Amino acid sequence: MVKNIDWDKTSKHNQSINLEQVPQDFQDAARWVRSSRISYAVETEVKVYRIHIQDFWQTAKPETIENARGISATVRNKKIVIREERIRKVLKLKDNAQDPISLSKDDILDGFRGMGFAGDFGQKKEIKRNGLTRDWRFIVHVIAMSLAHRKGGFDGLNL
């Protein structure tokens, strides 16, 4: 875990991070994240009421409207539909519908090899971050804490 970053210990995921306040040792990695397409998504703090989240997940179901897949739900008696294009726009990802949204296990492992991963891929269905260099561990930690849906530990990434 990256020390000296003020993460909210009560919330296990979807937290923003102020990349201006990271320790000096991680300034190069923070600069890289700030210049990437995900910078707005990881740095922007959004307040969402817990009751809205509960309403959403209690009523959420996949839906296809006009050949576009999405999630429909009812929040505070109002029907909403969330689509991939809307998420891209709101998070300012600067990508498009032709960009891949998932990768094969082989592509993921090739990416980790390219980042200098020194661990063993064959033991579990999880990649432990301690096999990465310090800067890549920081970047993976930022992504896991701010964009991942995990509610548990953050030392491993599921394949």
Score class of each variant (00 low, 15 high):
residue 65 I to G: 02
residue 3 K to C: 09
residue 7 W to V: 08
residue 132 L to F: 10
residue 4 N to C: 10
residue 24 Q to I: 12
residue 115 M to W: 10
residue 111 G to W: 05
residue 18 N to A: 07
residue 140 V to M: 15
residue 5 I to D: 02
residue 132 L to E: 07
residue 13 H to R: 14
residue 127 I to Q: 08
residue 19 L to Y: 02
residue 109 L to T: 07
residue 24 Q to K: 14
residue 51 I to R: 14
residue 33 V to M: 04
residue 138 F to M: 09
residue 28 D to Q: 13
residue 82 I to D: 01
residue 145 M to D: 08
residue 140 V to K: 05
residue 57 W to L: 11
residue 10 T to M: 12
residue 95 D to M: 06
residue 124 K to F: 12
residue 80 I to G: 03
residue 19 L to C: 06
residue 108 I to F: 04
residue 29 A to N: 05
residue 126 E to Y: 11
residue 129 R to A: 12
residue 30 A to H: 02
residue 119 G to R: 03
residue 4 N to V: 06
residue 148 A to W: 07
residue 32 W to E: 15
residue 52 H to Q: 12
residue 157 L to Q: 01
residue 29 A to C: 07
residue 152 G to M: 05
residue 119 G to I: 06
residue 6 D to N: 15
residue 133 T to P: 10
residue 51 I to S: 15
residue 110 D to Q: 11
residue 50 R to M: 07
residue 138 F to T: 09
residue 149 H to G: 15
residue 147 L to Q: 06
residue 75 V to G: 05
residue 59 T to V: 07
residue 1 M to V: 14
residue 73 A to P: 01
residue 41 A to H: 01
residue 75 V to S: 05
residue 87 I to L: 13
residue 143 I to G: 04
residue 118 A to Q: 12
residue 57 W to S: 06
residue 13 H to M: 10
residue 72 S to P: 00
residue 150 R to P: 00
residue 36 S to Q: 00
residue 1 M to F: 13
residue 149 H to K: 11
residue 151 K to I: 08
residue 126 E to G: 01
residue 95 D to P: 00
residue 75 V to Y: 08
residue 67 N to M: 10
residue 144 A to L: 15
residue 29 A to G: 10
residue 146 S to N: 08
residue 69 R to Q: 12
residue 82 I to H: 01
residue 11 S to H: 14
residue 135 D to I: 04
residue 23 P to M: 08
residue 16 S to D: 08
residue 70 G to H: 06
residue 54 Q to T: 14
residue 41 A to D: 00
residue 7 W to M: 08
residue 138 F to L: 11
residue 120 D to H: 09
residue 78 K to T: 09
residue 18 N to G: 09
residue 135 D to K: 12
residue 130 N to R: 15
residue 38 I to K: 03
residue 137 R to N: 11
residue 140 V to D: 11
residue 108 I to Y: 01
residue 5 I to K: 02
residue 17 I to H: 04
residue 39 S to N: 05
residue 112 F to Q: 00
residue 77 N to R: 11
residue 140 V to W: 05
residue 85 E to Q: 11
residue 76 R to N: 13
residue 116 G to E: 02
residue 101 I to W: 09
residue 105 K to W: 00
residue 16 S to I: 00
residue 148 A to H: 14
residue 120 D to F: 11
residue 76 R to P: 00
residue 48 V to W: 03
residue 125 K to T: 10
residue 153 G to E: 14
residue 16 S to F: 12
residue 91 L to A: 05
residue 39 S to A: 14
residue 33 V to P: 03
residue 75 V to D: 07
residue 87 I to H: 04
residue 11 S to W: 11
residue 17 I to S: 01
residue 111 G to P: 00
residue 143 I to N: 03
residue 114 G to F: 04
